[in-house]
Every structure is written in C-alpha cells, then in structure tokens.
C-alpha cells in the first residue's frame, strides 16, 4: 500500500511546479494557474494527514479551503478582465499603475 511519504513527495513536486510558474511566468492567467496548483498540493497534504491520523477534521478543512480557493479565483479573474480592459494586455509587467 502507498504510505504517507509518497503523497507528501507528490505534493512537494506540485508545490515546486507552482513556485516555478509564479517566478517565471509573466502572464496573469498563468500566475493564477500556479496559485491553483499550489493550493491543490496543500489540499492533498491535508487529506493525506487526515487519512494517516484516521481523523475527519482534515477533510473538513479541505472543504473550506476548496471553497475559499473558488472565491479567490472568481475575484482574481474579474480583476484580470478589468485590467485587460484598461491596458489591453495581460502581461503583469505592464500593470504599472499598481506599483507604489
């Protein structure tokens, strides 16, 4: 049977892929993809530990996390659409007026 560490390794690899995306990509939608990948890796860790401890609380936390991530992506995509309307561009390097 697969042990806890297998799931943790998959989760770490996914977090690394997400970090790579956030560092390298300058396309706003792809940055949202990276955030989603990291959020899912964290959910996988929560469920794996919930199974390891034979406790249902990790699953409840994961349900909350999924709902929050859905709310976040709705607002994030709305912001991207309005920024696209203003700048005709979805490259985050062009969003200069958000700079301090």
């Amino acid at each position: 049977m697969n042990e806890l560490i297998d799931y943790l390794v998959v989760s770490i690899v996914m977090i690394s892929v997400g970090i790579y995306g956030i560092i390298v990509k300058r396309n706003a939608i792809r940055m949202i993809f990276s955030i989603e990948i990291i959020a899912n890796a964290v959910n996988l860790t929560l469920i794996a530990f919930s199974r390891y401890l034979s406790d249902v609380q990790g699953q409840v936390f994961t349900l909350f996390a999924i709902a929050i991530a859905a709310a976040e992506i709705a607002v994030g995509l709305g912001i991207i659409i309005i920024a696209y309307r203003l700048y005709r561009e979805i490259d985050v390097a062009e969003y200069r007026s958000l700079k301090g």
Partner: peptide, 24 residues
C-alpha cells in the same frame, strides 16, 4: 479517492473541474 475521501473528491470535481475550469 485513493485516500478514502470520496466526498471531498466529489466536491473537488464539482468545484475545480466543473466551475473553476469553465470560469478560466
């Protein structure tokens, strides 16, 4: 599903594969 959490798996499919993917 492999980790014995079918309810969360269904929720994940409904929210991510259903709603978020279509939104994106």
């Amino acid at each position: 599903i492999l980790l014995d959490a079918p309810f969360v798996a269904m929720f994940q499919i409904a929210v991510y594969v259903g709603a978020v993917a279509v939104l994106v």
